[in-house]
Design a protein around this nucleic acid. Structure first.
Lengths: 182, 182
DNA sequence: AGGCTCATGTAACCGGTTACATGATTAT
DNA sequence: ATAATCATGTAACCGGTTACATGAGCCT
């Protein structure tokens, strides 16, 4: 449900190929939505069959030929529909495999879980480092995009920073509690 | 990958039926892992074929008959293996459909997005209310479980509270920023 | 009779991942 | 030569959801 709408979202900014979409996914929404290129191509075909996008074959001499996708009127409608639709499932059907694992970690030695939590902190730090390129990516792609639209990009980044800080602080608290039982 | 291991985790606490598992899933890990009963029954069959659980038919006169599942030695091994295995994908491949939607919300009127964010806060509040039954559930199921194991349950609950507060605070910030453009 | 709890499933579908596969063009 | 970038896919699989389906026994 979501990759297809993400694609429609980006195509509403301008025409793109599957290759472009894969790149833009990885340089913008990657920290809360990752996409394989194979999946993107699959989804583009589906969207074309549904009439939400149309495609134009571009013959190139300096580079391999490509397929440039446009969003159609019915695609825009579908996209706006999705935007305004309720999305409470995100809160209700939240899944976190790491927490599930931690829930059962009483079956391991505290030392083991401390190691896992330290690795978690490490992963968060790396994620945070990758996120630091976001402001740069935003300013790189902002031409032609109105200020109040950029605001939304910044709000998602704000969430990302707050979330990753929460994770790190929480994991530190956990380690502290576990040190007692070591 | 995760429901099956969650099932093994609960079975390592004691023998259960599919029905018991559905109940215990919904009263404990529900806020970071939800499970349909149909899925649980499906997964139990798979686990039995893999030799990770075995089942015992219990004939009852006062209630319908049932199938009581036990974890096997190889099931315990698989479970412990999963526990100590790396889970960095949780951080790296984090998905959040709400953020994806918000990312594109510049295509809507600010009033519309404010409404969506207020709904989000509302959903968070409801989620928070449901979470308040967790301490109760923990104390209800703690008999026979060592103190340091309960600690892990509390750590996941701690995450849940912190996360939901973050969501609410963040959404309030977003609304404030959007009020300017209203 | 009607509703609740207990109890177990099947079938179709769907979004997404993994692995594999190909090939043109450009720069070094 | 060969690596990098550009460019597009297929096929098998998998974890999970949705909808549907059934039925025993208890309590009121």
């Amino acid at each position: 449900m979501s990759l297809s709408h993400g694609i429609l979202g980006f195509l509403s900014y301008g025409n793109m190929t599957g290759y472009d979409l894969a790149k833009v996914f990885n340089s913008s929404v990657n920290f809360f939505w990752c996409a394989q290129n194979s999946h993107i191509y699959l989804e583009l075909n589906k969207l074309e069959k549904q009439g939400y996008v149309s495609c134009e074959h571009i013959i190139q001499s300096d580079k391999p030929n490509k397929k440039l996708y446009h969003i159609t009127e019915s695609g825009k409608e579908e996209f706006l529909n999705w935007l305004s639709k309720d999305s409470s499932e995100t809160v209700e059907k939240n899944k976190n495999a790491f927490l599930l694992k931690l829930f059962f970690s009483g079956e391991m030695k505290p030392e083991e879980s401390i190691k896992i939590l330290k690795k978690f902190i490490d992963d968060c730090q790396k994620y945070s480092d990758r996120m630091s390129s976001i402001p740069e990516n935003i300013s790189k792609n902002r031409d032609g995009i109105e200020d109040y639209k950029i605001l939304y990009w910044e709000m998602t980044a704000d969430f990302g920073y707050s979330y990753i800080n929460l994770c790190i602080e929480w994991a530190k608290r956990c380690i502290q509690k576990l040190e007692v039982y070591k």
